[in-house]
Structure formats: structure tokens, C-alpha cells
Amino acid sequence: MKKDIYHPPGGILIWVIIFVEIITFSMGILAYSYMRSKNVELFNSSQMTLEKGLATINTIVLLTGGFLMAMGIQDLKKGLNKQSARWILGAILTGILFLIIKGSEYGIKLEHGHDLRENLFFTYYWLLTAFHFIHVFVAVVILTALYFSVKKGKYTSENYFDVETGGAFWHMCDLIWLMLFPVLYLLH
């Protein structure tokens, strides 16, 4: 493949979106890190209430979704639509599983009264993870539309640009989570 600056995999528009999204989330995470450095005790004690195990499982779920989507695109490039659709369906299911696990984590937080207004830590926690949650939801919708199109044979080994673009959006959700997960859950 020719390495053209104007034609990255998935198209230039999705790459501009990926950059903007990653920079935006980075600013939020850095603001969190800065505020934490001013309130270490509050942030550490609040962080202790988070479900690290659930978040680790969710990270593995998202990474698995990224793997399944990458495999789906590989099969589509070879014209194997049926197999490709199967991989994409797997990626959709991991997305749904991520949303269910995250939803249950939110339920636990609310049950214990850890809402957006409890303290500064939880304000950041809710804003950062909820924006990411919305991105995963949108990605699941995009992948579902692509799944039916791939299954119907709308995309072929010669025409898979849209699937690559949708896949790039899906991987972007992975990347954002890979930035959020260590800072919110692991680093202390």
C-alpha cells in the first residue's frame, strides 16, 4: 500500500476525528491528573472505591473487540464476506458486553451514593467514563450497520473503505479507554 499522507487507512476524515478525540480526552485526563496532585488523599480514597477487577475485565473485552474487528477487515479484504460478518458480529457483542459491565459498575457507584456531585474525583470519573461510554455505544451502532451491509455483500474485497473507517472509529474507542483505564483505576 502506498503511504500517502492524504490517504491513511480508513480515510483522512476519520483520522482527523481520532486526533481531535484523543487530544480532547487527553486534556480531560491531564486536568484530572493535575487536580489529583493538589488533592492526593481525596483522589486516592475515592479511587479505592472503584471496581478495578471489573475495569480490567472490561479492558480485555474491548481489546478482544478490537482484535475481532481487525480480523473481520482482513477477511473482507480477501472477499470472505460471511467470515468477515461473523468477526464483526463478535466485535459488536464485545461492545454490548462492555456497555453492560460498565452499566453495572455505574449501578454499584450510584447505589453507594458516588454520583457526579460527591466530590471532584467522581466528577472527573463520571464525565470521562460517561463520554467514553457514549462513544462505545455509537461505535456499536456503526458496527451493526456495517455488519448487515457486509453480510448482504454490499462491501467486497475491492470496496471496503467504509468498513475500514467504521473499524477505525471502533479502535479509537479502544485507544481512549487505554488512556483512561490506567489513570483512573491503576495509578495512585
Binding site: 500517502d4 491513511p8 483520522w15 482484535f67
Partner: peptide, 8 residues
């Protein structure tokens, strides 16, 4: 996964 290795 994102095939950044194939990008400019």
C-alpha cells in the same frame, strides 16, 4: 489493529 503501521 488500526493499521497505523501502513499509514504515512
Amino acid at each position: 489493529f488500526l493499521e497505523l503501521k501502513k499509514a504515512h
